[in-house]
Computed example of a mutant assay.
Amino acid sequence: MTITARALNRATLARQLLLGRERLDAVEAVRRVVALQAQQPASPYLALWNRLSDFDPADLDAAQADFRTVRTTLMRITLHTVHREDYRAFREAMEPTLRASRLGDSRFTASGLDADDARAVLPDLLDFADRPRTNAEFGGWLENRLGGPLDPAAWRMLRQYAPLWHVPTGGPWAFDTRPPYVAAGTRPAPAGPEVASEGLKTLVRRYLEGFGPASVADMARFALVGRARVRAAVQALTDELEQLAGPDGTVLYDTPGAPRPAESTPAPPRLMAMWDSTLLAHDDRSRVVPPPYRKLVTRVNGDVLPTLLVDGYVAGVWRAVDGGIEATAFHPLPGHVWKGLATEAGSLTAFLADRDPGVYRRYDHWWAKHLPAAETRLLP
């Protein structure tokens, strides 16, 4: 069976709850979409606002406060919010990547420590983190354990490797830039090839449920895991997965029975969060981001701007300004699309009013750096 590019777009949008807002609680929604990119604390909230009917941000506050959803370093070595029950397998899948990238980083090895030292100290560090601990508290503990202070950069690498969860601190979006940390309540099994392999099989299944159909290259890019490891996991799941041919003949995999709407299915306009996972989940990002726009929305340092989604594809960017939402379209949009975006902007403005009307303001400098505009409007 061959699937078209537009049908791939619709399949992913359906699984990401972007073809129509659904009535789900925040915890179940996080499970359904698999992983919400979370290095900017507001983004998981805006991601769920885009996907759920009558989303109350207090629901996500509560889920994060009691760790039904958890914020931690996972796929692509960056922060994600995931369902608590997904955490262990995801962390086990990511173990080789996290170990190589964090414990092999020169910022860690410059401290004189190596991966063996980290593994030796980790059990006691996690025992110390049986309740929320600040960076200062970890620093004092490590100084006593190591006989001298650990450089902040080395601690950052160790912290991102260790199975630690971020602890909410309050504020408009639950987390600030220096949250406390606590040992993961569902600890990954001790590192080893078999554990990592089983975890990766689970991650592949879950990824396909949320972002499929997809290729080996897509899965590897989503997680930042070597293609050989992904290929082995897919081969082990051969009896569980369907195969399709992509638009260019690439072999794609999928879970049986997963949604694949007709390519003619309407896709409503959306104002997507910064770093929304849908924009970053595939090696071939043209599934959602037209190639001419990729470097416009993904800046040179990796910042992924908040985007306009029109007919299922990125068509521009938006930012919060005094008076509403400034929407910049990269190509001309018809009147009915602007009307739909205005409706979304009115809803978003109301959503932000009690929390953070100037969300993402610190990224406004990108608007002065070559963002071609067919038209810019203040909405609603």
Results as ranks from 00 to 15, higher is better:
residue 9 N to C: 15
residue 11 A to D: 07
residue 11 A to S: 11
residue 13 L to H: 00
residue 14 A to R: 01
residue 24 L to P: 04
residue 37 Q to K: 13
residue 46 L to C: 07
residue 62 A to L: 06
residue 66 D to G: 09
residue 67 F to R: 13
residue 68 R to P: 03
residue 75 M to S: 09
residue 76 R to F: 08
residue 80 H to C: 08
residue 86 D to E: 02
residue 86 D to T: 02
residue 96 P to Q: 04
residue 99 R to C: 06
residue 102 R to L: 06
residue 106 S to D: 11
residue 107 R to V: 06
residue 108 F to C: 01
residue 117 D to H: 14
residue 121 V to C: 11
residue 124 D to L: 10
residue 126 L to W: 01
residue 129 A to V: 11
residue 134 T to W: 14
residue 138 F to H: 09
residue 139 G to A: 15
residue 153 A to F: 12
residue 156 R to I: 11
residue 158 L to D: 06
residue 158 L to Y: 08
residue 161 Y to L: 14
residue 165 W to C: 14
residue 168 P to S: 04
residue 168 P to T: 13
residue 171 G to Y: 09
residue 172 P to F: 03
residue 174 A to S: 12
residue 176 D to S: 15
residue 178 R to H: 10
residue 181 Y to D: 09
residue 182 V to S: 08
residue 187 R to I: 14
residue 208 L to D: 00
residue 210 G to F: 01
residue 212 G to N: 02
residue 217 A to G: 07
residue 222 F to I: 07
residue 223 A to R: 06
residue 228 A to T: 12
residue 229 R to N: 12
residue 237 L to H: 02
residue 237 L to R: 08
residue 238 T to K: 06
residue 242 E to N: 12
residue 254 D to C: 10
residue 256 P to N: 11
residue 256 P to C: 08
residue 258 A to S: 15
residue 263 E to S: 08
residue 264 S to E: 15
residue 265 T to G: 13
residue 270 R to E: 07
residue 273 A to I: 03
residue 273 A to M: 04
residue 277 S to M: 01
residue 294 R to L: 15
residue 294 R to H: 13
residue 301 N to L: 13
residue 304 V to P: 03
residue 307 T to C: 15
residue 307 T to Y: 02
residue 309 L to A: 03
residue 310 V to E: 00
residue 325 I to W: 02
residue 326 E to L: 05
residue 329 A to E: 06
residue 331 H to F: 09
residue 339 K to F: 14
residue 342 A to V: 01
residue 343 T to L: 05
residue 343 T to R: 11
residue 350 A to Y: 01
residue 354 D to E: 15
residue 356 D to M: 04
